[in-house]
Design a protein around this nucleic acid. Structure first.
Lengths: 161, 161
DNA sequence: AGAAACCCTCTAGTTACTCTAGAGTCAAGA
DNA sequence: TCTTGACTCTAGAGTAACTAGAGGGTTTCT
């Protein structure tokens, strides 16, 4: 194999963490690579491209499941454009839904904040009041209380490259 | 204790799953409740209110950590409105950030989709091309490739009540 | 009395990583 | 040649916020 990269080099090329690369391998997104005499992973150009594609899809917030599906299309000899298109469509609608939901949320939160500014001088906090009453200054609260899909992931600190 | 509810009744009152209530207890958001002779959990009115507050905050997409903090303020004899306000402010800015990010994302995805519609008749899929080239029809790609905070949670199916 | 509906604890699984421990490999400098 | 340091290996545990299941006990209804 010409131009073989060790995992750390591949990581630098793609801006992907070393541990994440190993994780993708284990998750079946990257094929098991060749190994050096000392059992180090060795990657060729096609793996670099494949990983770049994966990272790009992740940056578009696709799940690994979606990406796995996409890669199957890629690997198929006759690429089926329709399937890819459908996958993308569905992902776009996920994103649009989430945006709409967050906008509702933002509005409610701002209502809540106003409650506090209004009664800043008072003995008890308007926000806490608003939260326990559950109204937050609006009438239509039911929609949010139910089983709306939500992102529950932690907000992590950005780590500088 | 008058008006004591079993866990299933509390669940119905608050629209919260039974297992989730037990989880909140274990996570320290709800105090350990009284028990019946048969070792069933028994809840009073204050617990109902507390759980409702928690669920409301979750519906506003706050993390359990944020909610724990909020509850400490609630439990404090002298409620500190400033702290509550700060917590809310920060949460609002989290939400706003996420919205902005998703909007960028949506735009990129739509660019990508256009690529396919443009070359529908061609032998190879424009989307896959676009994804591997990494450009998706735009120049400023760097911003998204880095370490932007993202929600990685699965999209779950909504379960009807 | 027996069945259905409820409750209990404990464990493991989910996503997409991240981090650690404990060990092995490799290239350069003293 | 030895050593130091940077890199790599595997395996396992931890993260958030639950959800699902096993294998039992309790209550309620008929």
């Amino acid at each position: 194999m010409r131009n073989a990269l060790k995992i750390g080099e591949l990581a630098k090329h793609t801006g992907c963490d070393v541990a994440t690369i190993r994780y993708y391998e284990q998750a079946g997104l990257l094929p098991k690579p060749a190994r050096s005499d000392g059992n180090f992973r060795l990657y060729g150009d096609s793996q670099v491209e494949r990983l770049a594609l994966i990272r790009r899809c992740r940056s578009l917030d696709m799940t690994l499941l979606e990406i796995r599906t996409l890669l199957r299309f890629c690997d198929a000899p006759e690429r089926n454009c329709g399937d890819v298109n459908a996958l993308l469509e569905e992902h776009i609608s996920h994103v649009a839904d989430r945006i709409a939901e967050l906008r509702r949320l933002e509005k409610e939160l701002k209502n809540l904040r106003r409650l506090c500014q209004d009664t800043q001088a008072a003995k008890h906090c308007g926000i806490l009041e608003g939260l326990s009453k559950g109204a937050a200054g609006s009438r239509r609260r039911k929609a949010l209380v139910g089983h709306v899909h939500r992102a529950h992931a932690p907000r992590r600190k950005a780590k500088s490259a």
